[in-house]
Design a protein around this nucleic acid. Structure first.
Lengths: 109, 109
DNA sequence: TCAATATCTCAAAAGATGTTGAAATGAGGA
DNA sequence: TCCTCATTTCAACATCTTTTGAGATATTGA
């Protein structure tokens, strides 16, 4: 995860429809769901959903596969969890341990 | 952490200067650093830095305190780590365990 | 091959965000 | 009090992003 990827990922998540799509796909699990079902859940036009799904896929937060007539989208979990690692990298000049998730407590103290 | 707070936080982190400020303050640790020092590190004008610091503070990702003539900014660690929790909440319909950080592996499998 | 379904692409308009430089504020020291 | 340093505010401008609606593309089954 470099700075450009992180910027792209955060920009993707800063839009209401896209944030909802990601949460929907995180909840849906690895099997994902078709673009049309995402659109129905959002109550948005197909072009709008397509625009946002493309945005998220370009940013690497979701992935797609074709299955018959449908295109199935699913969350890319490592990309999501990688974001907080990028943010917390070198936290407190390395005096705390982000891997053990003690970073927050250590830094807060 | 609700949806509006998350959207605001992600929007804050989707801008190059602001992402760099947050990373700088995360590395600086709980003592933080003065606005001027942040500006020097970024090589940006004072009005630009002030604009972005305000943005980040309004979003709850950093906090400030006055110390003599300087205003010292520091990272709000729980707000940062809360973002990934918001994203991963109800992951795989609750079939995996985000608290134990096994979510990624479980969902990937 | 034709019709139906699912999704994507495109350009124009509308809306949101970031940058700039000058001026204002607020705190501390002479 | 007056001057200086540190930071914020403001308005105008430039840039980027999102929405809309129409049309294009791809896949399947009859």
């Amino acid at each position: 995860m470099n700075e450009l990827q992180a910027l792209d990922a955060f920009a993707s998540l800063s839009q209401e429809t896209r944030l909802r799509i990601v949460r929907l796909l995180v909840i849906a699990g690895p099997d994902g769901m078709p673009a049309g079902a995402v659109g129905d859940a959002m109550g948005a036009s197909s072009s709008k959903i397509s625009f946002h799904l493309s945005h998220l896929e370009r940013a690497g937060l979701i992935q797609s596969r074709r299955e018959a007539r449908s295109i199935i989208y699913s969350a890319v979990y490592p990309a999501l969890s990688g974001l907080i690692e990028f943010l917390m990298k070198d936290c407190c000049q390395g005096r705390c341990d982000p891997a053990a998730d003690t970073c927050t407590q250590t830094c807060e103290a």
